[in-house]
Deep mutational scan, measured.
Amino acid sequence: TFELKGKVGKVVKIAEDHYLVEVEGDKWIAYSDEKLSLGDRVMVVDVDGLKLKVKRIP
């Protein structure tokens, strides 16, 4: 999972307290300090167990 840091993915689902992002064909639970929208491109900035911390990228 640490090899996911720096990888780019996209938001595929928005849940009440987390996001579902697809990175390299796999779906992961993710969270972010900013509000994300469906389809946003994101970069993995940290890995916390099986959850990814992501940030939006242009």
Rank of each mutant, 00 (worst) to 15 (best):
24 E>Y: 02
45 V>Q: 07
29 I>L: 09
11 V>F: 02
20 L>E: 05
23 V>H: 01
19 Y>Q: 07
39 G>C: 08
1 T>P: 15
57 I>N: 04
56 R>S: 05
8 V>L: 06
40 D>Q: 13
48 D>A: 08
5 K>H: 11
38 L>P: 09
4 L>C: 03
56 R>C: 04
8 V>E: 15
32 S>A: 09
56 R>V: 06
38 L>H: 11
17 D>Q: 12
20 L>Q: 08
19 Y>S: 11
32 S>R: 15
43 M>E: 15
37 S>I: 13
5 K>P: 06
19 Y>H: 08
6 G>P: 00
41 R>H: 14
56 R>N: 06
47 V>M: 05
38 L>Q: 08
1 T>C: 15
13 K>H: 05
17 D>P: 14
1 T>W: 15
51 K>H: 06
40 D>W: 12
45 V>H: 07
58 P>F: 12
57 I>T: 14
27 K>V: 06
3 E>T: 01
16 E>W: 10
49 G>F: 12
22 E>N: 05
58 P>E: 06
12 V>I: 08
27 K>C: 04
23 V>D: 01
2 F>K: 15
27 K>M: 10
18 H>S: 13
54 V>Q: 00
5 K>I: 14
7 K>P: 00
54 V>R: 00
24 E>W: 01
25 G>A: 11
43 M>I: 14
3 E>R: 01
16 E>C: 07
22 E>D: 08
44 V>R: 00
17 D>G: 08
1 T>Y: 15
50 L>K: 05
4 L>G: 02
40 D>T: 09
10 K>G: 07
27 K>P: 04
23 V>G: 01
51 K>N: 04
40 D>K: 05
1 T>N: 15
56 R>D: 03
9 G>W: 01
44 V>A: 02
48 D>S: 11
56 R>M: 09
21 V>A: 09
7 K>D: 02
2 F>D: 15
32 S>C: 04
40 D>A: 11
4 L>Y: 01
46 D>W: 03
1 T>R: 11
40 D>S: 12
20 L>A: 07
56 R>I: 05
29 I>Y: 07
39 G>I: 14
53 K>A: 04
42 V>G: 02
17 D>V: 07
30 A>S: 06
16 E>T: 12
49 G>I: 08
9 G>I: 01
34 E>P: 07
55 K>G: 11
36 L>G: 01
56 R>F: 08
44 V>T: 02
49 G>Q: 09
52 L>H: 01
36 L>I: 12
30 A>Q: 00
38 L>Y: 10
45 V>P: 00
11 V>L: 11
42 V>H: 01
39 G>N: 09
38 L>F: 10
53 K>G: 05
24 E>D: 04
17 D>W: 13
11 V>W: 01
8 V>H: 10
1 T>M: 15
22 E>C: 05
33 D>S: 14
51 K>F: 10
23 V>M: 03
55 K>E: 14
6 G>K: 00
16 E>S: 13
45 V>Y: 14
7 K>I: 01
26 D>W: 15
29 I>C: 06
16 E>L: 08
9 G>C: 04
17 D>K: 10
27 K>H: 09
25 G>K: 07
48 D>T: 14
45 V>L: 06
48 D>K: 07
53 K>V: 03
5 K>N: 12
13 K>P: 02
28 W>D: 01
54 V>F: 02
41 R>C: 10
4 L>A: 02
34 E>A: 07
34 E>G: 10
49 G>S: 12
23 V>N: 01
47 V>S: 02
58 P>N: 05
36 L>D: 00
31 Y>E: 06
12 V>A: 15
34 E>L: 09
10 K>W: 13
47 V>T: 03
33 D>C: 13
55 K>N: 13
33 D>L: 09
17 D>R: 15
28 W>F: 08
40 D>P: 01
21 V>W: 02
57 I>G: 06
13 K>Y: 10
31 Y>S: 06
40 D>C: 07
17 D>F: 11
6 G>D: 06
26 D>H: 15
55 K>I: 14
30 A>R: 00
36 L>Q: 09
7 K>N: 03
8 V>R: 03
3 E>D: 03
30 A>N: 01
15 A>Y: 11
20 L>P: 01
38 L>C: 07
4 L>Q: 03
28 W>I: 03
1 T>V: 15
18 H>Q: 12
28 W>V: 02
45 V>I: 15
27 K>A: 06
25 G>T: 08
18 H>N: 09
58 P>A: 06
46 D>S: 03
26 D>R: 04
47 V>H: 05
28 W>H: 05
31 Y>M: 08
15 A>M: 07
14 I>Q: 12
11 V>E: 00
29 I>P: 05
20 L>M: 09
41 R>G: 13
25 G>E: 11
33 D>R: 13
23 V>P: 00
32 S>E: 03
14 I>W: 11
14 I>L: 13
7 K>H: 04
26 D>C: 11
21 V>E: 00
44 V>P: 01
43 M>D: 06
47 V>P: 03
22 E>A: 08
45 V>T: 09
55 K>C: 15
12 V>Q: 10
52 L>T: 02
24 E>I: 04
19 Y>W: 11
57 I>W: 10
42 V>W: 01
18 H>W: 12
55 K>A: 13
39 G>K: 10
10 K>M: 12
53 K>I: 08
9 G>N: 00
28 W>G: 02
46 D>Q: 03
15 A>T: 08
30 A>Y: 00
51 K>Y: 12
2 F>W: 03
51 K>P: 02
32 S>I: 14
4 L>W: 02
41 R>A: 08
27 K>F: 10
50 L>E: 04
51 K>T: 11
22 E>S: 05
2 F>N: 15
26 D>K: 13
28 W>T: 02
16 E>G: 12
2 F>Y: 04
36 L>A: 05
36 L>M: 11
49 G>E: 06
31 Y>Q: 09
37 S>W: 13
5 K>W: 15
46 D>M: 03
17 D>H: 08
34 E>Q: 13
47 V>C: 04
4 L>E: 05
46 D>R: 02
47 V>G: 04
9 G>A: 05
25 G>I: 08
40 D>F: 14
48 D>G: 04
37 S>D: 07
25 G>P: 04
45 V>S: 09
18 H>C: 08
8 V>S: 09
37 S>F: 07
21 V>G: 01
31 Y>T: 06
15 A>H: 08
55 K>W: 11
50 L>H: 08
29 I>M: 08
9 G>F: 02
5 K>E: 15
24 E>K: 03
36 L>K: 01
28 W>R: 03
5 K>L: 15
37 S>V: 13
6 G>V: 00
58 P>H: 11
48 D>F: 13
32 S>G: 08
11 V>T: 14
47 V>W: 03
12 V>C: 06
29 I>V: 09
26 D>Q: 15
41 R>V: 07
3 E>A: 01
45 V>M: 14
35 K>N: 10
2 F>P: 15
11 V>A: 06
44 V>S: 01
25 G>Q: 13
20 L>T: 08
22 E>Y: 08
48 D>C: 12
27 K>W: 08
3 E>K: 01
14 I>C: 05
15 A>K: 08
56 R>K: 09
27 K>I: 07
22 E>K: 05
21 V>T: 12
23 V>F: 02
34 E>K: 10
44 V>E: 00
3 E>I: 02
43 M>T: 12
51 K>I: 08
14 I>V: 10
22 E>F: 09
21 V>N: 00
13 K>E: 07
33 D>H: 14
53 K>H: 10
33 D>T: 12
18 H>F: 09
53 K>C: 05
2 F>R: 05
11 V>C: 05
51 K>R: 12
12 V>K: 07
27 K>D: 10
52 L>F: 03
14 I>K: 09
3 E>N: 02
16 E>K: 10
57 I>A: 07
51 K>V: 10
40 D>E: 10
48 D>M: 12
32 S>Y: 04
20 L>R: 05
17 D>Y: 11
25 G>S: 10
54 V>S: 01
2 F>C: 15
10 K>I: 11
55 K>V: 12
31 Y>D: 06
39 G>D: 14
29 I>E: 07
57 I>C: 12
27 K>T: 10
5 K>C: 15
23 V>Y: 00
39 G>W: 14
15 A>E: 08
50 L>V: 11
57 I>H: 06
42 V>T: 08
